[in-house]
Design a protein around this nucleic acid. Structure first.
Length: 473
RNA sequence: GAUGGUAUAGCCAAGUGGUAAGGCAUGGGUCUGCAACACCCUGAUCGUCGGUUCGAAUCCGAUUACCAUCUCCA
């Protein structure tokens, strides 16, 4: 019984999908005019973790996340770089894929592009005009926000309280064309010097900012979707406008649950990180400095609705934890490979594993309470470590435990299974064998020398009751 | 001005009425030929003030501080 916090109602609600066993979710993706920053990554990781938990819990998840590949910033950035908009967006779409891969962010089921849905967008806009919800004004098309009842409910903004132009970025010309300052563009007429335009019944132009998400969400997931997600800052105006235009168009509820992730803050004063403040860190740069799995864990274990303070100490701590999780997995795995491991079930361990799974799900069912889930994973880790030192172990149940452990940790996006590289490690095994012989002969001087020699090459030896295991530093 | 969020040990953080989970760090111990890994032990009365209650971090009121949103932003 999964409960999620719905921004629309500001309460935790029991999650009930429209179709049993299937979750249709749409998450607003980045505008691709630069490398993604850690705020984008946080959002992607938050919803990837949610997605992975649904999948762990047995749901099929249809996860649609877009690239917004046409807007003012793209036009500006392309012009600065001296390349076409398409070249620019293609480059950063590719970079998104490359940068999110090491963070174990699963690719979306569908990753649609605004520019590949222009016909559908034009049709959608035309329908809104026919319905009387939108009007043409000198090549632009605006949505009559006041005509939509309950406008602003999602962000809990009263339409009359909206401070017009509070961000001081409103274009006066646009303001003059609007019937009402709260109206928003669904289609923007082209400026004479803009190359990236499409023909429409209202003249050349391009989609407004919010329309692509409405069109693509409905196209790929249906008129009503289960979950719509994105960053907190999107609640207003982006999602508010999506709701207005979508529900005006279909006459149906657009999304049953609205989930919003909190911001990333940086620096000592915990200031919001954003592109406009210029204090952002790109994932592209960060991946050269930090262990990707540590970054992933750090972000995944901060509850998605809370602000996430990006600090070096948080990364350092996460690095320790990742190591601890991986060590536990590897050490028990080593123990189970020993000849004395029994093929018979260990009912005691099996019961523990069942209990951990139950507790893990209880934690995650509560609006993805990762902090409590981590408590379970920590207990699980300790149990694995204890078992790895046990005199009698069951290979059968031990492997079951490892599988369940890895699955739970993978919900958070961390892989504890060592990658199997093909390189030749025979020489290490030989050194270890030589050292073991020296140890048996109580020639500790030679044994220590071999250990030091391997250490110099980044190989750590660890003696156990069943023999010596090695790992890379 | 409107609308939200946050305040718990050195740091991160769970906990919505019954005498404060967990992690990191610190210190001590066990295991080990030594080491490593691991395991065990070690810490706070919950921003401030007042109220309700047999009992509050948890409810109510006030207050302080910090952060965010109000048509560029994940």
């Amino acid at each position: 019984m999964i409960h999620v916090f719905n921004t629309m109602t500001r309460t935790k609600e029991l999650f009930k999908p429209l179709q049993a066993g299937i979750v249709n979710m749409y998450v607003c993706g980045p505008t691709v005019y630069n490398y993604i920053h850690i705020g984008n990554a946080r959002s992607a990781i938050a919803f990837d973790t949610i997605r992975r938990y649904f999948e762990y819990a047995g749901y099929q998840v249809n996860y649609v996340s877009n690239f917004t590949d046409v807007d003012d910033k793209i036009i500006k950035a392309a012009r600065t770089a001296g390349i076409s908009e398409h070249e620019l967006t293609t480059k950063f779409e590719q970079a998104f894929i490359e940068d999110t891969l090491p963070l174990n962010i699963k690719p979306a089921t569908v990753r649609p592009l605004a520019t590949e849905h222009i016909n559908e967008i034009i049709k959608f806009v035309a329908d809104l005009i026919t319905q009387g919800y939108a009007y043409v004004a000198k090549g632009d098309v605006y949505f009559r926000a006041r005509k939509f009842p309950d406008y602003g409910h999602l962000a809990h903004q009263n339409i009359d309280d909206l401070e017009i132009g509070a961000s001081e970025r409103l274009d006066d010309g646009e303001l003059a064309r609007k019937e009402d300052p709260v109206d928003f563009a669904v289609w923007k007429g082209a400026n004479p010097d803009e190359a990236i335009t499409w023909d429409s019944p209202w003249g050349p132009g391009r989609p407004g900012w919010h329309i692509e998400c409405s069109v693509m969400a409905i196209k790929y997931l249906g008129d009503t979707i289960d979950i719509h997600g994105g960053g907190q800052d999107l609640a207003f105006p982006h999602h508010t406008n999506e709701i207005a235009q979508s529900e005006a168009h279909t006459g149906k509820k657009f999304a049953n649950y609205w989930l919003h992730n909190g911001f990333v803050t940086v620096g000592d004063d915990n200031e919001k990180m954003s592109k406009s403040l210029g204090n952002f860190v790109t994932v592209h740069d960060l991946l050269n400095e930090v262990e990707p799995q540590a970054l992933r864990l750090m972000m995944a274990t901060t509850h998605y609705r809370r602000p996430l303070a990006y600090t070096k100490t948080a990364i350092a701590e996460a690095t320790q934890v990742v190591k601890r999780l991986q060590t536990a997995y590897t050490n028990l795995d080593f123990r189970l490979q020993q000849d004395d491991a029994s093929p018979v079930e260990d009912s005691n361990l099996a019961a523990q594993v069942t209990a951990f799974k139950l507790k893990f799900m209880q934690a995650m069912d509560d609006d993805f309470n990762v902090a409590n889930a981590m408590t379970v994973i920590n207990d699980f880790t300790t149990a694995l470590n204890v078992y790895a030192k046990a005199t009698n172990v069951s290979s059968l149940t031990g492997h079951d435990a490892l599988r369940e452990f890895a699955a739970e940790v993978m919900v958070l996006g961390v892989n504890v299974q060592p990658s199997l590289d093909e390189e030749n490690t025979k020489w290490i095994d030989e050194k270890v064998a030589t050292r073991d012989a020296a140890k048996k002969a109580k020639d500790y001087a030679q044994a220590d020398m071999i250990r030091a020699e391997l250490k110099a090459q980044g190989i750590i030896l660890e003696d156990t009751a069943q023999g010596t295991r090695w790992k890379k530093e």
